[in-house]
Design a protein around this nucleic acid. Structure first.
Lengths: 337, 337
DNA sequence: TTTCGAAACCAAATCGTTTTCAAATTGGAA
DNA sequence: TTCCAATTTGAAAACGATTTGGTTTCGAAA
């Protein structure tokens, strides 16, 4: 059923029908009611591609997905979906071949030129991320999930990674711990830097010297959590507490502790960052895991909302949200022995 | 840069340029070379929306995402991405509001009518899934990840869930276990049914009676794994082995065993299904987890490939792939005490 | 020299909407 | 009754590509 045909059946012009359905004011309410009603009855729906061609709007937000297959990703997208359902806006997943830097820039460039999306959501930016400069230069609306200190206006939403780790570390020191290890994410991304800062700042505030033997970084996997924790705990002067970067990392840390006959919460304290997953909760671990918590799903929802605002004309330079992170204390933390 | 403009710069007609770029034969090779070369130099790229309107092809595959935020999803999509990168085909995520059945059908209907995707990939179908009948009726190309016994031709790719669970159960019986529990996925989906069949068939083959006290089902979460395993193991006549539906479930099962002072692999054997995640591996669990294994990422890659074949004209009724599932024995299984 | 077919190119119609600009209708005030 | 402004409606021109159905060009065969 095409517009022309549909309009004819109603005895109206395509113009009027189009206006009625798009909510323009120059059409009487009685006509609008009739049109919308008949559209449902006769099953008329505007051809998306025609609309897109005409309006220049695509009706899709692109989300760049790294190749690592991170478990956060599905949660973030589920959150986006919550916001976007009913908004007539699609989520387009842009697979990012993990190529060299030059190729990656090319990919972004081509994505913009192909006009397949109205806006882009980018994850885990780097401190001086040229991709941000590129997107800005190309005039593509975009939102950064995370932050970059690059000197280019850009909309972003980030959680307070620095504060989260700082508080986690401080709390461990409150409990009497002085040797505290940290497992960070892969170096390069700003969030890893922030977490590192949080860790160092906390130590410094108490006059505890930074020990490079007590930090490690890598992908957020169970395996690395285990390996790093093992290597920490087997040191001559082992840490009594570990700050872990993710729930998966925490699993590995727990396993490492058990494997060495150490009891988490007593022999070694653990705090991890929890993105809140429906399938794995800090509360249910044994012992329950003290965690810095921030919902990835909520972030997805809000990011989608902010992108819609961006597309509605709100200035990117006034969209900056820094979310506080909760510190939830459970059984995995205890006084230093 | 528009086609008209670009063609003028080349001193050619839009027709010829379009043909040259689309690889039609009615254009001389020397012209084609010049056109493609200049297109790169001058940065001409056809407007996607115009192409889509004209050709009726969208260049996107829709993937229906449940609201549960399943951790499998990101892996599956990462797999799809591997296949689709460079194919000029996008992945569109279709959020599925978990509504009642009627609304869900409406959602599929509207998705098809909106013509936003060329094909659809659907997950976890039910035994007599009307959505399949609907998509077939509406003439939308689609592929089912999983299976349905509905009497309508449809392309599908599935893993041998029945065989996987049957072999897992049989192996446990080989080890002398006679009371074996199983934690299944949410009832309704075909895969849950198949797993149940596998379980029952294995028992029956050895003449062991099915005990409804030893089966449970629900979402694949750590929490349910724990709860179900606890309730099994606290029974008066507890099972000596447990077949778990997912890695997350297995985490819960391990935890339950530990909480009761039982040692996995000695006091209670565990086999789980492993979709192969980069961030959580069965091999690294302690004790290492015996598992039925099939790569979710590989499934995504293959599904994307099959959908492309479908779009290229291959008949849906000849696309049926049943993937065998490996059984990998590790330390979590041992002889019955 | 003429004729013919293949090879290479092109003008214009088309895809299904939105939107500009103009016309028709309506209802009240003069 | 007449006129005017406000309210509704329409005709037709975009949007930027693809594709149908030609036309031209050119070399070889007759």
């Amino acid at each position: 059923m095409k517009l022309k045909e549909f309009a004819k059946q109603l005895g109206l012009s395509p113009t009027t029908v189009s206006r009625a359905l798009s909510g323009y004011p120059e059409v009487s309410e009685v006509t609008r009611a009739r049109v919308t009603e008949e559209a449902v009855r006769l099953g008329y729906r505007p051809n998306v591609n025609a609309v897109r061609l005409k309006t220049g709007r695509v009706g899709a937000i692109g989300v760049v997905m790294g190749r690592a297959g991170e478990f956060h990703f599905a949660e973030f997208m589920a959150g986006m979906a919550e916001q976007l359902v009913g908004e007539d806006t699609d989520i387009l997943v842009i697979p990012l071949a993990d190529a060299n830097y030059e190729e990656e820039m090319q990919l972004y460039r081509r994505l913009v030129e192909s006009r397949r999306v109205d806006a882009i959501i980018m994850h885990s930016p780097r401190p001086n991320d040229e991709r941000i400069a590129l997107l800005h230069k190309l005039g593509m609306p975009f939102l950064v999930h995370g932050r970059s200190d690059i000197d280019v206006p850009h909309a972003w939403l980030d959680i307070d990674n620095e504060g989260a780790v700082r508080r986690a570390t401080s709390h461990l020191m409150d409990l009497g711990h002085t040797r505290i290890a940290m497992i960070n994410g892969r170096p390069g991304a700003t969030y890893a830097l922030h977490r590192d800062n949080g860790y160092r700042n906390a130590l410094q505030a108490r006059g505890i010297e930074f020990d490079p033997q007590l930090v490690a970084s890598g992908n957020f996997t169970d395996e690395l959590g285990f390996r790093f924790a093992r290597s920490f705990l087997e040191q001559p002067n082992p840490p009594t507490a570990i700050v872990a970067g993710s729930m998966m990392t925490a699993l590995g840390v727990y396993r490492a502790a058990r494997s060495l006959g150490l009891q988490v919460g007593r022999d070694v304290s653990v705090i991890a960052h929890d993105d809140v997953f429906p399938y794995l909760s800090a509360d249910n671990m044994a012992p329950s895991l003290s965690a810095t918590r921030s919902s990835m799903r909520a972030a997805g929802t809000r990011c989608a909302d902010l992108v819609l605002q961006l597309l509605a004309g709100r200035s990117a330079s006034e969209i900056h949200e820094l979310w506080p992170v909760e510190l939830i204390l459970r059984e995995s933390t205890g006084p230093a022995q």
